[in-house]
Write a protein that binds this DNA or RNA. Structure first.
Lengths: 155, 155
DNA sequence: TTCCTGGACGAATTTCATTCGATGGATGCG
DNA sequence: CGCATCCATCGAATGAAATTCGTCCAGGAA
């Protein structure tokens, strides 16, 4: 809840670049003693500013060479169906990201598949077949780049 | 290059859930001695299967409460402009993800902004003003969920 | 000024990471 | 079948790091 100061932001930026950075190295980088640095990181974690640490995997090396974005348009926007279909989309193993959107598209789902046959079965069974779904539009993803969120150190 | 066995996949899954897991705990979880486990993790890193470790930050707590998806359609698909505009989009501080797509939309860009004014300026200055850009369509992101890639332990 | 609070420090302790030689199972070949 | 080779694993040793905790200092309030 406390506003983030410059040191907090430096910590966040560093851990965004390399979440496995040792506390000692991180402390040196931000100019604090290791113990003080650790206390800050723990605070950032408990306050939910750091939500977690994830390894970034190469999907191709896992046999998932085909990525797609599936735009989902619902039939009617009654409250309950909205939450249900969102949970359904997030629960699919092929799903790696779900956007809930305003506009004609209600959900945009980023999926990873082995091949086109896998994608075909997925779209049929887990999207088109759903009663809440009015129509979908599938786009092939040629490349995907994920970046860190900006950490404005102006403060 | 060696195919991933069951233990590799368990390691990947664990580090995807918590990249800061200690090597000792990870070893216990996969049923290896710490030294053996460490060797595997290092191999996964050098082979590029683990591409990095990132802290996941809460964007709202950083004063970035507004997220949008900007669909970009280019004027002409001449090779060079394509790469240039992609680099440009990735270089924006507000950008957190870039999809290069097949279909009528050439790029889809996920951006985070402070407020609507920030978003307005961004779309004007960094998107619409670009000569390569034919038109854009901006959609408000109500919620965004990112999940790990599926780790099939069938092998 | 004096008290009080919140961070920061650094030594001490515990836990962990990393290295390295040895072991054992699998493979392939004589 | 016996033997040599290879590769992954193990576990002890060592060096390094994480974590705890008592102390100190600066800033704000009374």
């Amino acid at each position: 809840m406390t506003p983030l100061d410059r040191i907090d932001r430096t910590i966040l930026e560093a851990l965004q670049n390399n979440a496995r950075l040792s506390n000692k190295a991180l402390a040196a980088q931000v100019g604090l003693a290791p113990s003080s640095c650790l206390a800050r990181v723990k605070r950032l974690e408990t306050e939910g500013i750091i939500q977690g640490y994830r390894a970034e995997l190469n999907v191709r090396s896992m046999g998932l060479g085909l990525q797609a974005l599936i735009a989902v348009q619902l039939r009617q926007h009654v409250g309950e169906a909205f939450g249900n279909i969102g949970d359904h989309l997030r629960s699919l193993p092929e799903t790696v990201a779900v956007y809930c959107l305003g506009g004609t598209t209600d959900f945009l789902v980023h999926v990873v598949c082995r091949d086109t046959e896998h994608l075909r079965v997925l779209t049929n069974q887990s999207f088109t077949n759903r009663p809440e779904v009015s129509r979908i539009e599938t786009s092939l993803v040629f490349s995907f780049t994920r970046l860190g969120v900006p950490v404005d150190k102006g403060a």
